[in-house]
């Protein structure tokens, strides 16, 4: 392993986040706070507690997942798309580094950033509602695994995209609706039976449900199914990345 190369890429990507601190940290924290004000305080006060958890506290895991998914994707996709766009990718391609090392560098940095962000949002949420974390280990486990999985997904997106529009369209048209409809703000049991079934086709439901379980021990689906689901997505992403590098897809002509 060329760990120095991994470190070089990782440090470079982290430095990029530091330069754009406002964009990477301040804006998600701000928007999360706004969610709390609107959903937690204004609307939440009129919504009864869900399975014994106040509505404000109920939405915390979902809100963190929402940021985790979108930020992991945004970070990772931009991280690899930008060098392709400017042409500086030539250096990565001509360096003595393996595909695994490239992925660890870029995806590792993107995931680190969104994990830090997740923790910051959690702390921010603590200012608004009393937090209770029943299974801290599993909470971190879901946090880290989701960050890695969706950073990988973002990496794939950044390799696939051939313009800034495409880079934004997938998060906007696919991921945002899926997260909003993924039970971040409600329990699936609140839906009519038909929609409960439809919702189960949305992978985000499993992520939010598992993550929420680690906080309050309430879940829409069994936590083992949540774990299996995230493992499945992770596996699919890994296979795709492996295929990309094997074929040189969009990276090498």
């Amino acid at each position: 392993m060329n760990w120095r190369a991994v470190q070089a890429i990782y440090t470079f990507e982290m430095a990029r986040a530091y330069r754009t601190l406002a964009q990477s940290i301040v804006s998600p924290v701000l928007s999360t706070s706004l969610y709390f004000v609107v959903f937690g305080a204004a609307i939440g006060s009129r919504i009864t507690a869900v399975e014994g958890v106040s509505y404000g506290a109920f939405i915390v895991p979902g809100l963190i997942m929402l940021s985790l998914l979108t930020q992991s994707m945004a970070n990772a996709s931009f991280g690899i798309y930008f060098p392709r766009f400017t042409g500086t990718i030539f250096e990565i391609l001509s360096a003595p580094i393996s595909t695994t090392e490239i992925v660890i560098g870029y995806v590792g940095a993107a995931a680190s950033k969104s994990i830090i962000l997740g923790v910051i949002i959690l702390a921010t949420a603590g200012l608004f509602v009393p937090l209770h974390i029943a299974h801290p280990f599993w909470m971190l486990f879901f946090l880290v695994l989701t960050a890695i999985t969706f950073s990988l997904f973002g990496f794939i997106l950044g390799v696939w995209a051939d313009g800034f529009e495409k880079l934004q369209i997938v998060p906007l048209l696919v991921i945002t609706p899926l997260t909003f409809l993924g039970g971040s703000f409600y329990s699936i049991s609140m839906l009519p039976p038909f929609w409960q079934t439809v919702t189960l086709a949305n992978p985000v439901v499993y992520l939010v449900s598992g993550f929420r379980w680690s906080f309050y021990e309430i879940a829409d689906v069994d936590v083992s199914i949540s774990l299996a689901m995230i493992g499945l997505i992770l596996g699919a992403c890994l296979v795709t990345v492996w295929w990309i590098f094997k074929t040189g897809y969009r990276l090498k002509s």
Binding site: N2, R4, A5, Q7, A8, T11, F12, E91, P96
Partner: peptide
């Protein structure tokens, strides 16, 4: 400085 050091790191040199 950063970009030149980055290149050295990419090639695995201390």
């Amino acid at each position: 400085w950063a970009t030149v050091s980055f290149s050295r790191g990419l090639f695995g040199k201390p």
